[in-house]
Each structure stands twice: as structure tokens, then as C-alpha cells.
């Protein structure tokens, strides 16, 4: 008897659909429903050991595996780009184990797994955005103990976070958190939006379903569409989403999040869109930045 037969699969199937066994998927699916019912609250789940290292997207992969259907079209990005090696690796994993369609186009995807970015193009009602989360606990670097942070969430005791942010202002003149900037959900739970740049925080209230998976830390949390998300700030120091000044050298966008690329050893640098699909889409539509190739070039 083969393993596949023991698990009740068709003989010859190397993997069950989307790799995870059905019992594991059920456990994750139950956690996802509770996560949606209590937005911003971190639901513990019995994260499985995946065939990729902890810290490399095991939480996001398990969440994606639990929500994918055979009809889905999957997009995977890391740092906003479809062609970074870990994004390529995860996309390949699902092509192999779920046999689903994949795309690099944000608009064509029904499920998007991401690490560190929210796509520039607004997501729509039919889409699900799955985040890979390294440390889901927004209070972890203020209080390392799980027993303590759990109590703080239960009692809605977020004073420590405000003290930390205020100390930033006292020392640096502004809140010195540039990514994984904490947010408050529907006036109740303080949540880590995963290490997205704070530039992306305003996009967190969106039409798509957002699911967050932290494999090593065994937590799942979620934001239903249109959930109220407030970046923590102070009246006299309001939240400001930041980005590099300048325009994309390829597509000329002045509103997208930019990566800085060092082009020589004499201080030369340029900026390009971090969202590769967004940038390619603009170039296809005829937009040009100052360093873009001429029409018909590479």
C-alpha cells in the first residue's frame, strides 16, 4: 500500500491537492474563519513542518494551500517582484503540487501571496492577499514573553506601544518605525501588518480579503474587506506614509514605492518601482522614465 493510497488519494498522485493533507487543511481553515471573525486577533494554529525553511514563507504557504481551489490563478511576490528567487520558488511549489494557473499580473490573480509589499494596483473584491509574516506579535520587541503579550491583548493594554512610539519622537523627532508599522483594527486589536513599508499601510483598508500566516510562530490573522485599519500615531505627530523622493527611472511613476539601485561606485543611484508588474504595465501603456530603453528596445 502506498502512502497516497493510505491517505485515500488516487494512486499515482504524488501530492494531495496543494500538498497539505486534508486534516491539516481543516485545522487551518477553522483558524482562518475565526481570524476573520475577530479581525486583527492572532489565532494559534498547529503549523506543520513544510518542505521549505521556517522564515521563508511557511505560514503564507500553509494559508495559501488551505484557500486555493483548482480554479485559482496565483501570483507570488517578494519585495513587490515576481522574479525574486523565493517568489519563484514558492510559485513553482504550487504549480507542482496544486497544478494551478499562475500569473505575474496583479489584475489576473485571484490569490496573491506576498512578502513585504502590497501591490500598487488596488485589489478587488474577488481577490485574496496572503501575507508571509515573520513575527506576528506587534508587542514582541517590547515584551518578549508570549504569556505577557497575550494578556496585554486580552486587556487591551497597549500603553507600552504608545510609550515606545513617543520615545521615538522624543529622540528622533518622529516615529522611527519605517516598516511593520503597527496598526489598530476596528478600535480593538493592535496588529503587525507584516514587514511592509509604512508606505503601504493606507492600502490595508481594501476590497480584497487579507490573510496573514506566521508558520514558525504558529499564528494566523486576518482582515475582512473594508476593515477599519488605523496606523498608530499622535495628534501632534500624525502618521505619514513615506517613500523615496523621485520617480521610477523605467516608467516615470512618482506615486509608486521605489527601490534604490546603486549603479556605480561613485554615489550614482537610480530609483525603480518595487512592484515589477505595476512598472511593466505602465511601460506597456507607453510611460517612460528617464533611463528607460527607447520604444522597441529591451
Amino acid at each position: 500500500m502506498t502512502q497516497a493510497e493510505i491517505r485515500g488519494e488516487a494512486p499515482g498522485a504524488d501530492y494531495t491537492f496543494a500538498y497539505l493533507d486534508e486534516q491539516t487543511k481543516r485545522m487551518i481553515r477553522r483558524a482562518l474563519l475565526k481570524a476573520l471573525a475577530v479581525p486583527g486577533y492572532q489565532v494559534p494554529f498547529a503549523s506543520r513542518e513544510m518542505p521549505m525553511p521556517y522564515g521563508w514563507g511557511t505560514g503564507g504557504v500553509q494559508v495559501s494551500a488551505a484557500v486555493l481551489t483548482p480554479e485559482d490563478t496565483l501570483k507570488v511576490i517578494d519585495q513587490g517582484a515576481d522574479d525574486t528567487t523565493n517568489a519563484v520558488s514558492i510559485r513553482k511549489f504550487f504549480q507542482k503540487t496544486a497544478g494551478i494557473a499562475v500569473t505575474e499580473h496583479t489584475g489576473e490573480a485571484t490569490v496573491i501571496q506576498t512578502r513585504h509589499r502590497i501591490p500598487e494596483a488596488p485589489l478587488t473584491e474577488g481577490q485574496i492577499l496572503v501575507y508571509q509574516v515573520p513575527i506576528p506579535e506587534p508587542l514582541r520587541f517590547l515584551e518578549p514573553r508570549e504569556t505577557e503579550t497575550r494578556r496585554m491583548h486580552a486587556l487591551e493594554e497597549y500603553g507600552l506601544m504608545h510609550v515606545k512610539l513617543y520615545e521615538d519622537i522624543a529622540r528622533h523627532g518622529e516615529i522611527a518605525t519605517a516598516y511593520a508599522y503597527p496598526v489598530k483594527i476596528e478600535g480593538r486589536y493592535v496588529m503587525d501588518p507584516s514587514p511592509i513599508p509604512k508606505f503601504d499601510n493606507p492600502k490595508l483598508r481594501m476590497a480584497a480579503i487579507q490573510l496573514f500566516g506566521a508558520g514558525r510562530e504558529q499564528r494566523i490573522y486576518a482582515l475582512p474587506p473594508y476593515t477599519e485599519v488605523v496606523s498608530l500615531d499622535f495628534e501632534d505627530h500624525p502618521f505619514v506614509p513615506g517613500k523615496a523622493e523621485g520617480a521610477c527611472a523605467l516608467c516615470g511613476s512618482e506615486t509608486s514605492y521605489l527601490d534604490e539601485v546603486i549603479v556605480d561606485d561613485r554615489g550614482g543611484r537610480m530609483f525603480v518601482c518595487s512592484d515589477t508588474d505595476y512598472c511593466a504595465g505602465r511601460r506597456a501603456a507607453g510611460y517612460r522614465g528617464e533611463m528607460a530603453a527607447e520604444e522597441g528596445g529591451a
Binding site: 488519494e9 487543511k25 488551505a66 481551489t69 483548482p70
Partner: peptide
């Protein structure tokens, strides 16, 4: 696997 995924 497929039907449960669709229903979920």
C-alpha cells in the same frame, strides 16, 4: 481535496 477547497 478539490470539493472541500471549493466549498471552503
Amino acid at each position: 481535496p478539490r470539493e472541500a477547497a471549493q466549498a471552503f
